[in-house]
């Protein structure tokens, strides 16, 4: 592998890793706030991707606006699902594992509604900015990948600032760490939970537009991506937001490099072997569920 190839692969891995991070973030936030393993998180990505694409079709919008539509689409659908389904189930004190199955039900519904609306064929996406190679520090890199990394970093940076410096962000963290104490301090935990789903959906929606721009959009793009992001979140330590970001990046890099070095067919298997090893050696993931940072 030449240095040039290495840099290309590295960037490719980081780009796909950033996308996993964005989804894994949401999965981790939701686990921390509600203990729910959210199997429908990938569908939020799919909806975000589709909404962004539809916005682009209606009017030849610039990419940042498409991204914004994706974020809004993902956030909205996530909020609706939380309010209509999960909150109802929580109010009835349904066991967690049942809520987990309900998230699979949500996933089935969203996938098939999307198939009705957008059809079952993969849909081409506008490419992100210019696809001509540019030279950075002496290496030819794809601006497409570079932009994905930059935009993801911006989005995640914004999220960190939101958690650190806004009242709502701090309240959401407090509610996730200790709902009872948060309640005593006058935080409406039901509301912060809904916001958690909204923010998680927005992250996934952004990931959907970015992933779509890399490949294409289709009604079934979400589930597998969601599962991979779930693995990434586990790698980093379920429930840790920083862990989800790092887990996503590591998973993206492992996947891309093993696809390059071992075999394309077994790149997912390498990720799974690494996952199982990490679970065995570091049962709490790379970062434990401290939840105090970020």
């Amino acid at each position: 592998m030449t240095i040039d190839q290495f840099v290309q692969t590295m960037l490719g891995g980081l780009a796909i890793g950033c996308i996993y991070s964005l989804i894994a973030l949401g999965i981790s936030m939701i686990i921390r706030a509600t203990d729910i393993l959210h199997f429908a998180q990938g569908e939020m990505l799919m909806v975000g991707s589709m909404v962004g694409l539809s916005a682009y079709w209606m009017r030849d919008l610039p990419f940042p606006i498409v991204l914004l539509f994706g974020i809004i689409g993902g956030g909205l659908i996530s909020t609706v699902v939380e309010l209509v389904v999960y909150r109802t189930l929580r109010m009835q004190r349904v066991a967690l594992i049942n809520i987990m199955i309900a998230t699979i039900g949500v996933s089935i519904v969203l996938q098939n509604v999307a198939r009705l609306v957008w059809g079952s064929e993969p849909l081409g996406y506008p490419s992100l900015f210019d696809s001509k190679g540019i030279v950075v520090a002496g290496f030819a890199v794809s601006p497409q990948l570079l932009w994905i990394v930059i935009l993801s970093a911006l989005i995640m940076g914004t999220l960190i600032l939101f958690f650190r410096y806004t009242r709502l962000g701090i309240a959401m963290q407090a509610a996730a760490q200790d709902p009872d104490v948060a309640r005593l301090m006058g935080i409406n935990v039901d509301r912060t939970t809904t916001y958690t789903f909204a923010v998680a959906g927005m992250m996934a929606g952004a990931a959907g537009v970015l992933l779509g721009s890399l490949f294409f959009a289709s009604f079934n793009m979400g589930f597998i991506t969601g599962i991979k992001a779930f693995v990434a979140a586990t790698l980093g330590g379920l429930g840790s937001v920083a862990g989800a970001m790092i887990g996503g990046l590591i998973f993206g890099l492992i996947e891309t490099f093993s696809g390059m070095l071992i075999s394309t067919a077994y790149k997912d298997a390498v990720g799974m072997v690494v996952l199982i090893l990490i679970l065995l050696l570091m049962p709490n993931g790379l970062l434990t569920r401290a939840g105090r940072e970020v």
Binding site: Q92, N98, G105, L110
Partner: peptide
């Protein structure tokens, strides 16, 4: 899918 959600809600 809707049925799955409803049945999951039965406890």
């Amino acid at each position: 899918g809707v049925m799955v959600i409803v049945l999951a809600g039965t406890g």
